[in-house]
């Protein structure tokens, strides 16, 4: 077939080139819109937060209004405790339910669980806060670190379940068969071969779930509540960075606003560092498999 037997007009070609250029530039603009807020937030909080950040911020308790100085030591420790409780609840339940769905359950049941975890992921976190308020705060008749941790744990479960399941699915069937064919039991194959192979992916999911939970404010408002002092036990209200930021930000005092910015900077740094760790872990994973 000769080339000029393909019919095309110059005008049509010009139009196609124009549409192509237009669509491509829209994509570029969209990509910029995606990252600009992040860059803006990052630089703004760094600028506003860094100035009121000092050693006292990490070691001192909040000071009452009017007094200079003070810090968020109790909120930083509080967030770590809340994440700790959340992890103790969310990680084992998330991983085990993921393993069950991926390895053992019947297809129908697996699909039901998958659907429900997707729904759970989409439920606004404040509703989880209300739920925990109902099942823990009301019976105990007080706000507590325990309730806050449970709320964060429930938030973490669907993410970890799904990523465990996805990572288990990526482990080739041939590895399971290789292990079983050696006379290794099913549960040992699941733990020592499949879980081990999927582990770096699962850790990635766990870190992302933690990063998400660390910044949650809404579910902590009616559970952990907040505390201006060191909390002595898990059945006492406990301070956390996001709630502290919230309380400071809605206050009318300039000094507190600056503290809120510093807290925001700490939170963003935490999420940033966790994502960086995730990057490093996943990069190693790919290097190993190639």
């Amino acid at each position: 077939m000769e080339l000029n037997s393909i019919t095309y007009s110059k005008a049509k070609l010009r139009r196609r080139k124009f549409v192509n250029a237009l669509m491509l530039s829209l994509c570029v603009v969209s990509a910029l819109i995606t990252i600009i807020p992040l860059i803006y937030i990052f630089f703004y909080t760094t600028g506003a937060g860094l100035s009121s950040l000092n050693l006292d911020f990490f070691t001192e308790l909040p000071k009452p209004v009017g007094e200079e100085g003070g810090g968020m030591a109790n909120a930083i420790v509080g967030t770590l405790i809340l994440i700790g409780i959340g992890s103790v609840i969310g990680i084992p339940i998330g991983i085990m339910s993921g393993i069950y769905v991926a390895e053992y359950s019947k297809q129908l049941f697996a699909n039901i669980i998958k659907f429900l975890t997707d729904v759970l992921t989409g439920i606004p976190s404040i509703i989880i806060g209300i739920f925990v308020y109902g099942i823990i705060v009301l019976p105990m008749k007080k706000f507590s670190a325990l309730a806050g941790g449970v709320a964060l744990g429930i938030l973490m479960i669907p993410t970890i379940t799904r990523i465990t399941e996805e990572m288990f699915k990526l482990v080739p069937m041939s590895l399971r068969e290789a292990s079983l064919a050696l006379g290794v039991s099913r549960w040992r194959t699941t733990v020592s071969i499949v879980l081990r192979t999927a582990l770096s992916g699962i850790i990635t999911g766990i870190l992302l779930a933690i990063a998400r939970a660390a910044g949650e404010t809404a579910p902590l408002l009616f559970t952990a509540f907040g505390n201006s002092f060191w909390s002595s036990s898990l059945d006492e209200p406990i301070s956390s960075i996001p709630v502290q930021i919230f309380n400071y930000a809605i206050s009318p005092y300039e000094e507190w606003h600056n503290k809120a910015w510093a807290g925001a900077f700490i939170l963003i740094s935490l999420v940033f560092v966790i994502n960086l760790i995730v990057r490093i872990i996943t990069r190693q994973k790919y290097e190993n498999t190639v």
Binding site: A178, S179, G183, V184, S185, I193, T197
Partner: peptide, 19 residues
């Protein structure tokens, strides 16, 4: 299954060492 497969081993089509 465990008892049997200790006595009856299996080699697969594609080499499948634990990576």
């Amino acid at each position: 299954g465990v008892e049997l497969r200790k006595r009856v081993g299996m080699i697969f089509q594609k080499p499948n060492p634990f990576p």
